[in-house]
């Protein structure tokens, strides 16, 4: 017996269900990066490694560069 392929056209109920998920921020397509970050420990660890690496690199650059005056109203980094 031949089986029908998956239905390509969305039904009204299916569209409404997807929109409801979007509105709640739970739709797979619209899952926010922050949401994924909060749930995924590997993601958090990788982010920390990258953040540390960038910080170290920026300290090195600061040490190398000539001192230039900050724009008026700016505070120097602690």
């Amino acid at each position: 017996m031949l089986q029908r392929g998956p239905k390509l056209t969305s039904t009204r109920e299916a569209v409404l269900a997807e929109l409801a998920l979007m509105l709640e921020g739970r739709h797979p397509d619209c899952e926010s990066l922050i949401g994924r970050f909060l749930r995924d420990p590997e993601y958090q660890q990788a982010t920390k490694i990258l953040s540390n690496a960038i910080q170290v690199e920026s300290y090195r650059r600061l040490a190398r560069r000539d001192e230039i005056p900050s724009p008026p109203g700016w505070l120097l980094p602690a």
Binding site: T9, S10, T11, V15, L19, M22, H27, S32, L33
Partner: peptide
């Protein structure tokens, strides 16, 4: 690819209303 819908709450609400009212065709969703 990730899509951020944070700014599109109004668009999602409008899409929901249009679907419920029959002003949008569900076949256009895809």
């Amino acid at each position: 690819e990730y899509r951020m819908w944070a700014e599109d709450k109004l668009a999602i609400e409008l899409a929901e209303s249009l679907t419920t009212l029959g002003l949008a065709e569900p076949s256009a969703w895809e």
